[in-house]
């Protein structure tokens, strides 16, 4: 069984008359339980790569297999299904809906997955407990600190039971101390067996992962173990 494999992934974007070559022959394989950092400066194509990994976008060419499924063959509805079941997104800015409470925000992915209200509540509460926010369930985002908001966002990413946690600059909007707390949480979640992919431009943050790859000008190079960076 293949958990995660990318083979010769290329991505082109039309730029005026020309085709911009954003991703060049990306090869990447992950096992279940891996903790990977994709490290690269801005403009290196790392966000495009994340969109493809997260099934928000499809590659121009190449193969991407996630949990034994060929992603490029899927329809938009099937991609949405994968996003709701297999992938948990954490964005740079927590992206909580301001008019929903913490618990309602966490329940959001389950609503679209068609989970029953009782089950939604149970799982959302369990997830908020896991990120140590059980006393903040009925708070609105503007009543929470930046770190707390990001933890709610992590709970939301995890509530559907995804096999892959995908984080885009998860500490980008946080101060050093809160950033470290979030990194600690990521470490714990990985310790519990979850696969984590983190995209960042910050070497210090990237070092939290067990494996690092560099992306520069759309080309991926293995960075070895985190300790070597």
């Amino acid at each position: 069984m293949t958990f995660f494999r990318m083979e010769k992934i290329n991505k082109f974007f039309p730029m005026g008359e020309e085709q911009a070559h954003i991703l060049k022959d990306i090869d990447l394989t992950l096992e279940e339980g891996d903790y990977l950092s994709i490290l690269g400066p801005s403009g290196s194509g790392k966000t495009t790569l994340m969109n493809i990994i997260g099934c928000l976008d499809v590659a121009s060419s190449g193969r991407y297999i996630l949990n034994d499924r060929e992603i490029e063959d899927l329809t938009e509805a099937e991609l949405a299904h994968i996003r709701s079941r297999e992938i948990g997104f954490v964005f740079q800015d927590s992206q909580l809906l301001p008019r929903l409470t913490a618990q309602q925000n966490v329940e959001l992915p389950l609503i679209y997955a068609g989970t029953s209200p009782a089950e939604r509540r149970r799982r959302a509460q369990a997830m908020l407990e896991r990120v140590e926010l059980s006393d903040r369930m009925n708070h609105f985002p503007n009543q929470l600190s930046g770190g707390q908001q990001q933890r709610v966002a992590i709970a939301r990413a995890l509530v559907g039971g995804p096999s892959l946690l995908l984080a885009d600059e998860p500490t980008g909007a946080l101060d050093q101390k809160t950033g470290r707390q979030v990194m600690k949480l990521f470490g714990e979640l990985n310790g519990e067996g979850r696969t984590v992919i983190m995209i960042t431009h910050d070497t210090n943050i990237a070092r939290n992962a067990r494996r690092i790859v560099h992306i520069i000008d759309g080309e991926l190079t293995e960075g070895g173990d985190a300790a070597d960076v």
């Binding site: 928000l56 509805a77 996003r83 997104f89």
Partner: peptide, 16 residues
């Protein structure tokens, strides 16, 4: 727009 994008990323189908 941002909210719609977020919901789509969280698995909302176009018809939803």
């Amino acid at each position: 727009t941002a909210e719609i994008g977020l919901k789509k990323a969280l698995g909302a189908l176009p018809w939803q």
